[in-house]
Amino acid sequence: MALITVAGFPAAGKSSRATELSTYLAARIASPDYEGPIANVVLISDDSLGLTRACYDESKLEKPARGALFTAIQRQLSTDTILIVDSLNYIKGFRYQIYCAAREMKLRTCTMFVVAPPEKCKEWNSARQDGRIYADKTLENLTMRFEEPSSMVRWDAPLFTVMWDDEDAPGEQIWDAITKGNLKPPNSGTLAVAKAPADALHVLEHTTMLLASAIVSASSAQPTGGEVQIAAGTEVRVAMRLPGRNVTLSELQRLKRQFVSVHKKAITLGTTERGGVDWSALSVANKFVEYVESHLRQ
């Protein structure tokens, strides 16, 4: 249903705000007045995944930790779940990555930016008694590298900013955003590429070769042009309008090479056209005839 990304400086109070928001959203779902599709709220955090603060001390430790977080996010994304991701999320590229994963699932997204001064974060980090603290050098490094969310970019919007001294998280506004906001279609870059069948190249070559020969024969038999039936083998027949002149074999061979060259690329690289592409002999024949007709009229 929705993905909520929580971002902010380390030790800025993100987990407290995320828990507060999770409690509010769960209460809204459980309310007798709510009859929507959302069934539950899931909160993912470094702590819930067993990721210690020490994993941010070195990049070689941080990368697999971030990979584990992304894998957990992908597992929990669902059309009946509000997923809250409580982590540093300080890299805009990572926020964009999880945004794309949510859009692929056709989910709404928003970002909650928890703001606290670096001095306050350092104070809160030192005061923790549960052992879940950042090393001083790591805290300073992460604060300097933090890439602040912006409401101007699509992967952070809509953006809700929560100051360290705010009484409550903006639960109602976030609820409206994830239940009533615009549902963006998947990005073309996130769509699965439809692959052509294994025999598509053979069908393309064979069908166009037969049609080229058939068009030349039909043109010789009907030099005045007009509507004719063209056959490609025994199973494929298509209608075509011939021009009022003789069509040469070299002309048809040139058009065949151009047509095959263009469609070979689609077969090799795949396509993201909605519904995929029909590579049957009849479909190829119809497309080739349309291509030939448009070029013979020029």
Rank of each mutant, 00 (worst) to 15 (best):
P117T: 00
D57R: 00
V114Y: 03
A18M: 06
C121L: 07
V85M: 07
S261Q: 12
Y34W: 09
R28K: 13
K63G: 00
F70S: 12
G67A: 15
G225Y: 08
A169C: 09
Y34D: 06
T179P: 05
T271M: 04
E104D: 14
G93Q: 05
K122Y: 08
V277A: 07
F146R: 12
V238N: 01
K287P: 00
D156F: 00
V115R: 11
A200P: 07
S16E: 08
R108Q: 04
V228H: 05
A27R: 10
K14S: 05
V260K: 02
I29M: 11
K120C: 13
M144E: 15
T5Q: 09
A198M: 10
V216R: 05
I91F: 13
P186E: 00
G225T: 03
A231T: 09
P186R: 04
T52F: 00
M163D: 05
D136V: 07
S45M: 03
L269H: 14
F160D: 01
R245V: 06
D176L: 04
T109P: 07
A285K: 03
T71I: 11
V153I: 08
Q129K: 13
R237H: 12
N286A: 00
I73F: 04
D46Q: 06
S45T: 02
I91C: 11
H202R: 13
